[in-house]
Computed example of a mutant assay.
Amino acid sequence: MTKRLQSKYKLDRRMGENIWGRAKSPVNNREYGPGQHGQRRKGKVSDYGIQLRAKQKLKGYYANITERQFRNIYAEASRMRGATGESLVGLLERRLDALVYRAKFVPTIFAARQFVSHGHVLVNGKRVNIPSYRVKPGDVVEVREKAKNMALVLEAVSSGEREIPDYLEIDSKGMKVTFVRVPALADIPYPVQMEPNLVIEFYSR
């Protein structure tokens, strides 16, 4: 598992947005960036800077996956039919850790990565511990019996913080979710505006 070296909420403050829509995000109280120079007046951002920011925001949202992983996902999306930006977010939403997060089995995307890595998840009845595992339409993902009473899981399931999108079919009692279809950008409940088109421009320079 890739180690997340920096504080996850620094991304919120660096972007000046509540990336994950959490009530505890420090950007709710301090909209300026982190560090001693965070309150400096910001100058005009170049086109490159805007594209980089869009890339860092989207990459960071998915538990800050590595640059190599993200670039590989972009490369695969660029080879697919249709709009590359739509394909990019569709591939990101097919990650097992993203699905576990969307199904509200855990409270954060970072917890989802750890939850999967620790072997608490079954895909079609088989244990999978790879966060980047790619689910397919029709796959059934469920929490293992031993993990269903974990405090982390119970907190997330009872939370009203997020809605479950309609491209997932949820069985809350059994803690199971079926991945119905690959979502389009408009279907994904991002708390802030994501701009995959700018990410495509960044990589295709």
Rank of each mutant, 00 (worst) to 15 (best):
A184R: 15
K8L: 15
P189K: 08
S25G: 05
R113H: 10
V100G: 01
D166C: 02
E86S: 11
F115D: 03
F105Q: 02
M194T: 04
E155S: 13
K3V: 13
N64P: 09
F110T: 12
V106R: 03
R144Y: 05
F179C: 01
D166K: 13
E76L: 12
K146C: 02
T178R: 15
S172V: 07
P107A: 06
V106W: 01
G160R: 15
E31D: 11
Y101G: 06
R95A: 04
R13M: 15
S158Q: 12
K55A: 04
F110W: 14
R127K: 15
L88D: 09
S25T: 07
S172E: 09
N18Y: 12
L11C: 05
A75I: 08
A186H: 12
K136T: 09
S87R: 15
G160K: 15
A186V: 12
F202K: 01
E31L: 13
G138L: 01
R4P: 10
A63Q: 04
G49E: 04
A103V: 04
Y32E: 13
T84M: 10
K24N: 10
S46Q: 01
P137C: 09
V140W: 01
Y203Q: 00
P131S: 06
L99P: 00
S158N: 12
G33N: 08
R22G: 03
R30S: 14
V45H: 10
A63Y: 02
V180C: 00
P189D: 02
P165S: 03
I19E: 03
K44A: 10
R14N: 11
V180Y: 05
R79E: 07
T178C: 01
A151S: 12
W20H: 14
A23G: 09
E155L: 13
P137I: 11
I130T: 13
Y62K: 01
N129Y: 08
A54T: 07
G21L: 06
F115G: 01
V123W: 07
A112R: 04
N129V: 04
V141A: 00
R4I: 14
N72D: 06
E161G: 05
P196I: 12
R205V: 06
D97Q: 01
K173F: 02
